[in-house]
């Protein structure tokens, strides 16, 4: 029991914050827990969750990707354009994943192979993809999509179940592989110490490259699953998505320096940040303060993380505490 508490203490503190928020809402606005609301809340946050899963991998290997919002917009528009050419929806799904994967591969090549700093490469991509998209679409929406686009043509209920099922499947696969497969453990190894991983026979560059490819593919899936909920596609979606995903991952206890964190934490982070906006509306609080509260939660998560870390260290030995990490 004690070891579980120690291993997952960051996840537990984030979960505690989530529970606290839910308790407050339960007391003040019980209608929040109506099944209809919970369903909407989950479906609305699934696209962010998929991005956050990819972001968890990226941050675990000690990198960062701030270009996902722009990639999301490109993938959304691509999905619409492809669907309008009459391509069957499963093929559209695969094609959009590929497009996302290719954009990820470009990031991966520059960061994994060329060893360029990820924040700068993805900053450049953030600007480039967004502006390239604006240049080609001039902001126009993709309209007149075929009948079978919205909900894959299956109707709202089945469509929502399908979106949920695909997301759940991806979450389970990634969560399980990260814990139990060699591939998953190498992600932690590279993030903890790339040089040690290399000496242990792991090709760090390869791992970083593929993590970015996976990130891109997940952006593609996320963009498509988001797009099929509607009957038209805006030309300029996903602005600020990268910060939302990074914030959720960090609040969920994944260390920004890499090598530490779990997908369970990420889910809790997405749930916490995704609930706040809705909860504020239910509590009747002005939406003006939403951003400030989100910022406050990120800082609080950081502070509690550090405080917990200190407690643990002091408990262990005084010697360890003096060699603080830079």
């Amino acid at each position: 029991m004690a070891t579980i508490g120690k291993t997952y203490r960051r996840e537990i503190s984030a979960a505690a914050a989530l529970v606290a928020l839910l308790v407050i809402v339960a007391v003040a606005a019980p209608s929040f827990f109506a099944p209809g609301n919970l369903r909407d809340l989950i479906i609305n946050n699934l696209p962010t969750l998929l991005i956050a899963i990819g972001m968890t991998l990226v941050i675990l290997v000690g990198q960062i990707d701030i270009s996902v919002g722009s990639q999301f917009a490109v993938c959304s528009v691509a999905a619409g354009v492809l669907a309008k050419t009459g391509l069957p929806m499963p093929l559209v799904f695969v094609a959009v994943m590929l497009i996302g994967g290719l954009m990820g591969a470009l990031n991966g090549t520059l960061i994994g192979w060329m060893k360029l700093p990820s924040i700068i490469v993805t900053l450049a991509m953030l600007v480039m993809w967004r502006d390239a998209l604006r240049w080609t679409t001039e902001g126009a929406w993709v309209q007149g999509l075929p009948e079978n686009f919205q909900w894959f043509g299956l109707g709202q209920n089945t469509g929502e179940i399908l979106i949920f099922a695909i997301s759940l499947l991806l979450f389970v696969v990634f969560g399980w592989s990260l814990r139990n497969l060699i591939v998953g453990r190498t992600v932690y190894a590279v993030g903890s110490d790339a040089e040690a991983a290399r000496l242990a026979g792991i090709n760090s560059s390869n791992v970083v490259f593929w993590v970015f490819v996976v990130m891109g593919a997940l952006v593609g899936v996320s963009a498509l699953l988001n797009a099929i909920r509607f009957s038209a596609i805006p030309g300029n979606s996903g602005v600020g998505l990268e910060l939302k995903a990074i914030a959720a991952v960090v609040v969920g206890g994944v260390a920004i320096t890499g090598g530490r964190g779990t997908l369970i934490g990420t889910v809790i982070g997405v749930a916490l940040l995704g609930t706040i906006g809705t909860a504020l509306t239910f509590l009747g609080i002005n939406p003006f303060w939403e951003k400030a509260i989100q910022g406050g939660i990120i800082l609080a998560a950081l502070a509690s993380d550090v405080a917990l870390g200190r407690l643990e260290k002091n408990g262990r030995s005084d010697l360890a505490a003096t060699t603080s990490p830079a």
């Binding site: 910060l243 910022g295 990120i298 800082l299 950081l302």
Partner: peptide
């Protein structure tokens, strides 16, 4: 990143 949201939010 936290203060980025916090300052703008305030």
């Amino acid at each position: 990143l936290g203060t980025f949201s916090l300052f703008r939010g305030i």
